[in-house]
């Protein structure tokens, strides 16, 4: 799979696992849900934080 789709497909798959997990059961399944669904959100936050103009102007673009 080419590089354009690699990360989006991973994030999409994690989302699907997360959305399905909590309906299947409690406890362990809830943790799977919370962790996998947090990853796409964390990716957004990290990308934004790392490249925010005022935070570290010396950092080259990712």
């Amino acid at each position: 799979m080419n590089s354009v789709w690699r990360i989006p497909v991973i994030l999409g798959a994690l989302s699907l696992v997360g959305l399905s997990a909590a309906i299947l059961g409690d406890g362990f399944w809830h943790w799977i849900c919370w962790i996998t669904l947090s990853i796409p959100l964390a990716v957004c936050a990290v990308k934004l934080w790392r490249q925010w103009p005022s935070s570290s102007p010396a950092t080259p673009p990712a």
Binding site: P8, L11, G12, S15, L16, L19, P40, L48
Partner: peptide, 16 residues
């Protein structure tokens, strides 16, 4: 760029 990153990262959730 923000639209593309946020959009593709949350696409499955938004679709569902």
């Amino acid at each position: 760029d923000l639209h593309n990153l946020f959009g593709v990262a949350t696409l499955v959730w938004a679709f569902v």
